[in-house]
Design a protein around this nucleic acid. Structure first.
Lengths: 113, 113
DNA sequence: TGCACTACTCACCAAGCGGTAAGGATCGAG
DNA sequence: CTCGATCCTTACCGCTTGGTGAGTAGTGCA
């Protein structure tokens, strides 16, 4: 399975980071959680238009396993689950900021040549 | 096809950048070219242990299309092709540096808990 | 004569990533 | 007594990603 078979020997720090952030929605989840602080499952789903429940659960589980997000379950009815970033997740977001800026500049350059 | 069907509307700068850097060997190619300045096809292949020729060609073509690498062909026999980074490629590498540092720290943390 | 070297190109194939759809546990509302 | 809300889980399936191995062109070298 991908979840447990990952984390091979890394050649440099980049692919160690890419391993953790690769996935169609992971960077968006990171951004949502950093922006809003704490979000429930349904809030995340509504905040990421187009994501399927399966992928959202799967990515959240992997990111929890990777120590990026914290999952807090409240045993209520109906159930409530809140997700937030760990310190690792926040520092990853910090590390991603220059990349985001680069991407934004690039988008601007492509849009208006 | 993946090469031409990419570049959809981006939600934030991160996925614009991820679109360009996602691919098993792209970050390594970036690192190799940044580290060595100019490399021939065979040198890159030997520098990235495990890469298949097909993937190396494919990634180099995509990165050339994306304006990250420059391709210089010398019409000799045997043929010689040299790859180097463009300004965009170098700035992307700069933007990736914090991510690489994060990944390195994380690797260290995982290796020695 | 024939093989090697370079930088590919092409055809085929396996794995897995991601999407769709359905179900399920629990309780309040109507 | 069924419906809806919430947060998932499971099964299935197609497309993309990446790997393998073969072929190509022109010349040098044994």
């Amino acid at each position: 399975m991908a979840v447990s078979a990952r984390r091979g020997p890394y050649i440099c720090g980049i692919d160690a980071a890419m391993d953790v952030v690769s996935g169609k929605w992971k960077s968006l989840i990171l951004w949502e959680l950093d922006h809003h602080g704490t979000r429930r499952f349904g809030e995340l789903r509504r905040g990421l238009p187009g994501v399927s429940e399966k992928m959202l659960v799967q990515h959240l589980r992997e990111m929890e396993e990777d120590g990026l997000v914290h999952r807090e379950v409240y045993r209520e009815v109906p159930p409530r689950v809140e997700y937030s970033l760990t310190d690792d997740g926040r520092s990853l977001n910090e590390a991603l900021r220059p990349l985001g800026a680069w991407g934004t500049q690039r988008s601007a350059r492509l849009a208006a040549p």
